[in-house]
Structure formats: C-alpha cells, structure tokens
C-alpha cells in the first residue's frame, strides 16, 4: 500500500490500477442508477397504461431493434477481444478489434437515425399534433421511448469518442501491454452501454 501511495504522488509513473478500476465501476453505478430512474418511471407507467403501451409498441420495427441488438452484442465481443489481444501483446489485432467496435457503434447509430426519422415522417415526434391526438398512455410511451433510446444513443456517441481516443493511445503506445487499464475501463463503459440496450430492447420492442 505504501508503495502505491508513493507512486501515486509522484504523478508520472503508472497509477494504482485497482484504484482506477474501482473508480470506473463506481462511475458505472451512477450511469446504472441514472438509467434506473428512467426504468422506474417506465415500470410505473407500464403498470398504469398497460394496454396503451402494447398498442403503441406496434409502431416500432422489431427487425430494426433486433439488428441493433445483434450489432451491440457483437461490438461488445470485439471490445473484449481487443483487450485480450493487447494483453497478449498483439497490438495490431487489438487495433483491428477496436476499430470494428467503433464501426459497429457507427452502424448502430445509422440504424437508429433511420428508425427515428421514419417515426418523424409518420408525424410521431414530441409535441407533434399527431402524437398529441393519441391517448395519454401512448403519448407517455413515446415520451419514454424518445428519452430513453435518445439518452442511450448519447452514451453510444460518448463511448465512440472514448474508443477513438483509445485507438490513438494504443497507436502511440501510451496504452500498451503493460499499461492497459485505460482500455479496460473504456471496455467496461462500452459493455454497460450494451447492458442498457439489452433491457431497452424487450421493454420497448417486444410488448404484447
């Protein structure tokens, strides 16, 4: 412990890696609870507006949701493998895996863009007359849908930016076989984004 404290204070050498990981997990909890608040709101509204939720979810395209689920799952796979590759010393493979993760993230967003713009073309956007003419339960469903998937998309974008940084860090050897905690922590963040989607998918797309 003593040594850890000393290395930490002398700022240039590697930090306490377990500490960094604890910090990252604690941060992930705040993200988890942040979405948890919205899941709680979802639960309450689904409880009070059960039939309306089922009706409104018919507007969503299960196929697009399924594709996006598979994209995110696969991106999680490449993310995890990228860390393994780096730790085994295969920098090139690690970069390939990491790049594919970023490309998957981009695909997810493109898909999301088409999904949202289709909704907008149908006149189903917040504050639109078409939306406001729906029953209240459906208005709430779409309110939650836009807010929750929107905020998730923001997280995907943030994740992409973090991963892009990692790409450069690995290239410039700032993150390497011996010091990989930054990549590992970015991976944790990325997996959390995946986990949230794992719950969003059935809750919005698969209602009967």
């Amino acid at each position: 412990m003593n040594q850890i404290a000393e290395t930490l204070a002398s700022e240039h050498i590697h930090r306490d890696e377990v500490g960094a990981k604890i910090g990252m997990w604690l941060f992930l909890f705040t993200e988890l609870i942040l979405f948890g608040g919205m899941f709680l709101a979802y639960a309450v509204y689904r409880f009070s507006y059960r039939d309306y939720f089922a009706l409104a979810s018919k507007e969503l395209d299960v196929f697009i949701g399924l594709i996006n689920t598979l994209i995110l799952l696969t991106s999680s796979l490449t993310m995890a493998m990228s860390i393994t590759a780096l730790r085994r010393g295969n920098k090139k493979l690690s970069l390939i895996f990491l790049s594919s993760t970023i490309i998957f993230a981009l695909l997810f967003l493109v898909n999301k863009y088409f999904e949202w713009s289709a909704k907008f073309n149908h006149g189903l956007f917040p504050g639109s007359n078409d939306l406001l003419s729906l029953p209240r339960g459906e208005i709430i469903y779409f309110g939650l849908y836009y807010v929750m998937t929107g905020l998730h998309a923001v997280h995907v974008i943030i994740g992409m930016i973090i991963l892009l940084f990692m790409l450069f860090y690995i290239k410039s050897n700032k993150v390497n076989q011996d010091y990989y905690i930054m990549l590992e922590n970015s991976g944790l963040y990325w997996h959390l984004v995946d986990i949230i989607w794992i719950f969003l998918f059935p809750l919005f797309y698969l209602i009967h």
Binding site: F29, P126, I139, L144
Partner: peptide, 30 residues
C-alpha cells in the same frame, strides 16, 4: 453515488419536458 443520479435524471427529464414538450410527468400529457 447511488442516490444522486436519480435526481440528475429526474431534473433532466423535467428540462427536456419543458424544452421539447415530451410527455413524461405533465398530467395534461398523461
């Protein structure tokens, strides 16, 4: 860590509701 995010998201939702008219808490939107 475990309680603050809830108010964070709640206040953000109110802001979004005011901004875009998304139906979340406003009783006139259900």
């Amino acid at each position: 860590i475990l309680a603050t995010p809830i108010v964070g998201i709640t206040l953000l939702l109110v802001a979004i509701e005011r901004w875009f008219g998304v139906g979340i808490f406003d009783p006139s939107l259900g």
